[in-house]
């Protein structure tokens, strides 16, 4: 590893004793933020639980006839694989192989684009079929109370998740550039690890959205 010896000393803020304490503080801060993200989505999952309890039959029918199973399944594999490449990128960044880490983050970004592309195809289909929230709902195959509510929740939950995908891709792009410049190493890797935590949370939320929206 020739880069290892050439790298400058990792930045240590003066109010931390050592890199270990700084890294642990950064991790704790990120986990607190992730907890608030979990609770943000819990509000939506709670709304889903209530309306699914009230309209169980219609929700099942809408999930069977209204959403594309292939798209949801493909997107699940896409996100899981992107999580793997992010985890591997952190692994190699810690070993000082910044170029490889940046390449793996690039793969993650491509997978994120694929996820959003498939989602865009799905959204276009929903708009075409009139599977829309509230008074815009005109899908003839699934009627009855609660049918439009399924798609209201569908759009809010996948939409908010999609925003998180975009935010996560932005963070990963920044980290890819920094890894390419060989900024990370065995002691200084907290930024890329924390960016990875965010991306894994996005994956975590999709893991629950997939069965609830596509499989039930």
């Amino acid at each position: 590893m020739p880069e290892l010896t050439a790298r400058a000393a990792p930045p240590l803020a003066h109010h931390f004793v050592d890199m270990r304490q700084q890294t642990e503080a950064a991790r704790l801060g990120m986990w607190l933020f992730l907890a608030s993200e979990v609770l943000l989505f819990t509000g939506l999952f709670t709304a889903y639980s209530i309306y699914r309890y009230l309209y169980a039959g219609v929700f099942e029918e809408a999930s069977r006839k209204g959403v594309e199973l292939w798209a949801g399944t493909t997107n699940t594999f896409v996100l899981i694989t992107s999580s793997l490449t992010v985890a591997l990128a952190i692994h190699f960044a810690r070993l000082g192989r910044g170029k490889l880490a940046a390449a793996l983050l690039g793969v993650s970004l491509l997978l994120g684009c694929a996820f959003l592309g498939i989602k865009a195809i799905e959204y276009a289909n929903h708009f075409h079929e009139g599977q829309l929230p509230g008074k815009f709902y005109t899908f003839a195959e699934v009627q009855g109370p609660g049918a439009s509510m399924f798609f209201t929740l569908y759009f809010i939950m996948t939409g908010l998740h999609g925003l998180h995908v975009i935010a996560g891709m932005t963070v990963l792009a920044v980290m890819a550039v920094r890894a390419w410049r060989e900024e990370f190493g065995p002691e200084h890797y907290a930024p890329i690890e924390i960016a990875g935590l965010y991306w894994h949370l996005v994956d975590l939320i999709w893991i629950f959205l997939y069965p609830l929206l596509y499989l039930i």
Binding site: L28, W31, L32, L34, A35, S36, V38, L39, T42, G43, F45, T46, S49
Partner: peptide
């Protein structure tokens, strides 16, 4: 602990 606590609140709310 932070993550487990958030899951407790998920269970409570839902």
């Amino acid at each position: 602990l932070v993550f487990a606590t958030s899951l407790v609140f998920v269970a409570l709310l839902i």
